[in-house]
């Protein structure tokens, strides 16, 4: 029958000739190939010491961003939690008190912000849903752990370090 796509190829299986039936030439050729591979460059990257460069659209661990003055951007609107297909994000909102303006940009902020890294599928929908550009998946690989509860990351692990602290760190390093 004529194939509809016109791309069908009919492969003819010829009976093997004597040398092919002997197996041995094919085996020797294969062994030559594997032997040559022993002297090729190894592809291994020694992981903990050396890290492979991530691609540009790599999505890793989440980070909650701060603005130029070091204030948390998140306003606890809950859009990220709503958009999350894996339902990995939960948060508790709180109102900003007087004297906390240097900590939180908006009048409402997330007092508790938790992402369950075992549920997260790193789809990046939270990133897209966020109206305040507060959450980005620009971190490294989420490390392994022993207990399930340790995979629920709170603000202590998610929020970016404050700029002042970063500067202090840099100064200390210099």
């Amino acid at each position: 029958m004529e194939s509809l796509s016109g791309r069908k190829k009919v492969l003819e299986q010829k009976p093997m000739n004597f040398w092919e039936r002997m197996y041995l030439p094919a085996i020797f050729r294969g062994m030559a190939i594997t032997f040559m591979h022993m002297f090729k460059k190894k592809e291994t990257i020694y992981y903990p010491e050396k890290e492979r460069e991530f691609s540009e659209n790599w999505r890793g661990m989440h980070s909650l961003k701060r603005d130029e003055q070091g204030r948390e951007r998140c306003t606890a609107c809950g859009l990220c939690a709503l958009s999350c297909p894996a339902e990995a994000i939960t948060m508790i909102a709180a109102e900003r008190e007087k004297g906390e303006e240097h900590l939180y940009r908006e009048e409402k902020y997330a007092a508790v912000y938790e992402i369950n890294m075992l549920r997260c599928i790193f789809c990046g929908l939270c990133e897209e849903a966020c109206p305040k550009e507060a959450i980005y998946l620009d971190g490294p690989i989420v490390p392994a752990d022993y207990l399930r509860k340790d995979f629920i990351y709170g603000k202590d692990k998610l929020v970016e370090q404050p700029i002042t602290e970063l500067e202090a760190l840099k100064a200390a390093q210099d």
Partner: peptide, 9 residues
């Protein structure tokens, strides 16, 4: 040997 033949270390 397995590693070398598969370009690993």
């Amino acid at each position: 040997v397995a590693a070398w033949m598969q370009d690993r270390v």
